[in-house]
Amino acid sequence: MHTLLSIAIDGIAYGMILFMISVGLTVTMGLMRVINLAHGGFAMLGGAFTHYLMKSGMEFFSAAILGVIIVALIALPLERGLYRHIYKFSELQQVLATIGITFLMIASVNLWLGSSLLVITLPESMTGTVDLGFRSLPMHRLIVIGAGVITVLGLYLLIEKSRFGIYLRSAVDNRETAAALGIDTSKIYMLTFALGAALAAIGGILGAELLPIEAYYPLRHMVLFMIVVAVGGMGSITGSLLAAVGLGIVDTAARYLVPDFGTIVFYMVIMFILAIRPNGLLGKT
């Protein structure tokens, strides 16, 4: 019982981190049909800026918020200048181009902050444990889960209820028709891209305890983020949420219960899911 609860809490928290980082990837893939392997780089950049700002004396919350804003501001011109051309590429060229961008991101952070671990010290209010009466839980996991839930609700409201969401959905369904109806699709693309990058940055900062920030972060965890999208189904936010939380729990459970075979179990589950549902859990066929 004790282990089960630990697995559930850790697994869901891990899943929420995966979701926050990958959701931008899901949307850009569904919208722009671009396989962006560099997406994890935004999570890393978020963490790197936060680390740097905190080292310069800022406290955690303002450093994190500023870090996320900086990442969004970097994403905007990147989309305009670089990614715009990549949308037209074939799948394989996209993979290569975005690997190239990943390399450049890694090299830049490596040059700027070195290849050591970029520690983000959480404030006291986020560490420690919370007593629930029958047992206590780590505060950090609860905050992560809370942030994940807020992200899900926020995205739901943004996409289902706002005008921007209507534009976004119509552009996903059919870009030409949306453009013909007077929707500025290229602006939608740019904003969506920056939003995805910002969410990844939040995920990177909050998840630094589970996925430590360092220069090679985007390459090390690239597969993980892509798998969430592939399993969830391209373009499906609900699918990503299901996949991220499901895989988070599977991974955590495998590490708790069969520590030696954790990775094997994790990838076996993925192969099984993709074998029966090649387009992902909620992907369109």
């Binding site: 799948e91 592939a230 990838y267 993709l274 074998a275 090649p278």
Partner: peptide
């Protein structure tokens, strides 16, 4: 049997296993 992204992910999964 698969296409596109799924092939990429499945092939990575095989190598990782």
């Amino acid at each position: 049997r698969a296409h596109g992204l799924t092939v990429l992910m499945l092939s990575i999964a095989f190598a990782e296993v």
